[in-house]
Design a protein around this nucleic acid. Structure first.
Length: 253
DNA sequence: AAACTGGACAACCGCACGTGA
DNA sequence: TTCACGTGCGGTTGTCCAGTT
């Protein structure tokens, strides 16, 4: 069957972007907004592939990007998120405002991998390097959409099961971890900066904020689950209060 | 000073997914 | 249901630059 190429490669520039190209792209997006990347290059007068424009904007030109070195807090947060999510760089980036998936991926490969190896930790499994490979665990992240109406919550909830067979750190002593969250309107008061420590709203530690029950890493005594304002048990997944998925920053594919 | 080496990061490539016709 | 298209993601490569020999 085959697919048409995303652009006419013969007539596109490749390699490093020039200042003029950057300016054109910025000016166009300021005027018309993001989106329709395929047609953007032509409309903006750029001899670039749409994908290239998107990447340039997202990874380099976006005004909300935080440039500069990663902090220790960001380091630790990336490590913890990676231990749970694996190479889901976009999801990890979603929890680090101002950082891009590409930036985090590069940083992981150049800094954190070595840092973990120096600690004697296998960066792929987050387990001690001399420890034999653990029996394959199947972790199930269960995402459930929350009905807006109370009664709908009683009905069967649509669940998306994400299986992740990557070995994870010591936080998963149990063979089965069910991280359940409900999707609803974004939580509006998520003012807590992402520092990878205590999850603000509910006063939960990082482990509990991820919904890991009875984790050895639990430092808050909540043992994983919390109740939301309606008394329903939910998990403050990735720092989200009581199981409310903030889809602004945590995109589910 | 020149050559070499390795780290850092920008950019590209191919594939998967979601969506609409 | 199938297919084409647009977009996003993760892996990989290319390039630049600072440090070392």
């Amino acid at each position: 069957m085959g697919r048409s190429p995303c652009c006419e490669k013969a007539h596109t520039n490749k390699g490093a972007w020039t200042k003029e190209e950057d300016d054109r792209l910025i000016a166009y997006i300021r005027a018309h907004g993001e989106g329709c990347w395929r047609s953007l290059p032509k409309a903006a007068g750029l001899l670039r592939c749409g994908k290239s424009c998107r990447l340039r904007w997202i990874n380099y030109l976006r005004p909300d990007l935080k440039r500069g070195n990663f902090t220790d807090e960001e380091d630790e947060l990336i490590i913890k998120l990676h231990s749970l999510l694996g190479n889901k760089w976009s999801l990890i980036a979603g929890r680090l405002p101002g950082r891009t998936d590409n930036e985090i991926k590069n940083y992981w490969n150049t800094h954190i991998r070595r840092k973990l190896m120096n600690r004697g930790i296998d960066p792929a499994t987050h387990r001690p390097m001399n420890e034999p490979a653990a029996a394959t665990e199947v972790r199930t992240l269960s995402f459930a959409t929350s009905a807006v109406k109370e009664e709908e919550e009683e009905k069967e909830e649509k669940k998306v099961i994400i299986s992740n067979t990557a070995a994870v750190g010591d936080v998963h002593e149990k063979n089965f971890v069910n991280l359940e969250l409900r999707i609803s309107l974004p939580y509006q008061n998520q003012s807590e900066p992402l520092n990878g420590k205590t999850s603000s709203a509910a006063g939960l530690c990082f482990s509990c904020s991820l919904g890991i029950e009875k984790s050895k890493e639990c430092s808050c005594g909540n043992s994983g689950s919390s109740k939301n304002s309606r008394g329903n048990i939910g998990y403050d997944f990735l720092g989200l209060k009581s199981g409310v998925l903030d889809y602004r920053s945590l995109e589910m594919k």
